[in-house]
Design a protein around this nucleic acid. Structure first.
Ligand SMILES: [Mn+2]
Ligand SMILES: [Mn+2]
Ligand SMILES: [Zn+2]
Ligand SMILES: [Zn+2]
Lengths: 146, 146
DNA sequence: CGTGTTGTTGCAACGACTCGCAACACGGTC
DNA sequence: GACCGTGTTGCGAGTCGTTGCAACAACACG
């Protein structure tokens, strides 16, 4: 026996909350299912348009918002402020962005655990780790600066 | 005797690099001089327009870029990805943004020193602290969630 | 002071979202 | 299967920047 497929799980989750299952949402779920790693908002729009040229950006962005509220996605921002989405469930992580080469890396949640703990202790502030993007220079670019 | 005024210092810095001192840059420097705390890019455009209605956005944004390269400004991004500028020289700091109430706080550079050190040690990554924005929930909003 | 080089400006078009609103359609009900 | 209430879509307009390009002007030089 196999478990329920991902899109069907989401469908049931939506309906359980009084939300609707539509062809547009179905398409976006298919795109998510075949995605790996980070995908920007506009890349989602492009990928949806490949399968349905009538895709509207606002519908895509609104659906991504809904799916994020349901916990199926998390977004962060690249160094230029643009959105990047991550499909869940995966290990929670933050991001490193090199402003010199544009490269991007993931950082495990426990690597920023010290900071998360001290901000909570000293300021009562609860960090959203998945949204955290740290800009700077990667090892190679820093070395190349010599 | 008084030191050289801020705009004149910048003027000399620009000329020393083969860059030019223009009325538009002079105006932006005046706006910066009378600014306190965080100012977004579009707020800069608005404030310039108050003094000169002919101000063009692209000129403002390009000048802010130049001044950041010279080290007179630093920008970070609010939780929605929009730009925020800081006038320097001030103590280097990172930012906390509450995604519930929209509030914003500064975090001293040494409060994130542990993370900066471990990322450098473990990944060779050099963090740009001034660009760092940490999103989450502030003490009040976290308490109110109960 | 003209003159020429080259950095800058203004403009228009574009990219990445965001929002209000009216038409539409999902899906629970009879 | 028709009906209906409410969530959703598509659209147009708007916001916040970014970029290519031609006209312009700062300023070094003779
Ligand atoms: Mn940035
Ligand atoms: Mn965000
Ligand atoms: Zn790099
Ligand atoms: Zn708050």
């Amino acid at each position: 026996m196999t478990g329920t497929a991902f899109p069907e799980t989401v469908r049931d989750q939506l309906r359980a909350r009084g939300l609707r299952w539509t062809p547009q949402r179905r398409l976006i779920l298919d795109v998510i299912t075949s995605a790996r790693g980070h995908v920007t908002g506009s890349e989602f729009v492009d990928r949806c348009r490949e399968r349905d040229p009538d895709t509207t950006p606002s519908t895509v962005y609104r659906t991504l918002d809904v799916l994020e509220e349901l916990g199926y996605l998390a977004h962060s921002h690249a160094a230029d402020g643009r959105e990047e989405y991550h499909v869940l469930p995966v290990a929670e992580h933050a991001h490193l962005h090199c402003s010199a080469c544009g490269g991007s890396w993931e950082v495990a949640a426990d690597e920023v655990g010290g900071l998360v703990g001290s901000l909570r202790r000293d300021h009562g502030f609860v960090v959203d780790v998945a949204h955290l993007t740290i800009a700077g220079r990667c090892r190679n670019c820093e070395a190349a600066r010599a």
